[in-house]
């Protein structure tokens, strides 16, 4: 019983913390983001397992976490409000080559972040070649280039 409650509490706590932290922080953009992710999992591990290192406990915890995730995905699939609450919404940050500054500031996104993605995924050179750039729910940036005339 204890391990199920622990897993549920940690799942809920991490969900809340990650939502507050913002989508970009742990999207593994820099090497340090990746290290931070490892550190967080390390810090969680003890509280998740307690002093019980049995296989029964490990599987109970895993099954609980996975079940919560399935449950949450079912709920967010049915309710768009819940989906927006938990996963957030995508955000357009560049429109027809014009950066939407206010949105970028709020989302802590710089022009160079967008250009990096534009170079990497589309091979673009300048901001004005971008038709749309969208900050997706997961923290990634999608770049849609203007059609070449």
């Amino acid at each position: 019983m204890d391990s199920i409650l622990r897993a549920a509490a940690i799942y809920a706590g991490l969900l809340l913390i990650m939502r507050i932290t913002g989508k970009r922080s742990l999207a593994q953009i820099t090497t340090f983001d990746f290290i931070l992710l490892l550190l967080i999992s390390e810090a969680t591990q003890q509280a998740l397992l307690g002093e019980d290192f049995s296989m029964t406990n490990a599987f109970l915890v895993i099954i609980t976490l996975v079940s919560l995730d399935i449950g949450l995905s079912l709920l967010t699939f049915r309710s768009s409000l819940l989906s927006r609450l938990i996963n957030g919404t995508p955000l357009v940050v560049v429109e027809n080559g014009v950066p939407l500054r206010e949105r970028m500031n709020k989302a802590r996104l710089s022009e160079s972040d967008i250009m990096e993605e534009a170079r990497r995924t589309q091979g673009l050179e300048r901001l004005d070649q971008i038709k749309y750039a969208v900050l997706e729910k997961g923290g990634g940036i999608s770049v849609i280039p203007k059609q070449q005339a």
């Binding site: 919404t89 995508p90 955000l91 357009v92």
Partner: peptide
Amino acid sequence: MAYRDLEIDEEMGFQ
């Protein structure tokens, strides 16, 4: 804001 050819469920109020 409406985008002519971008199908996106953006919602500024919520954001």
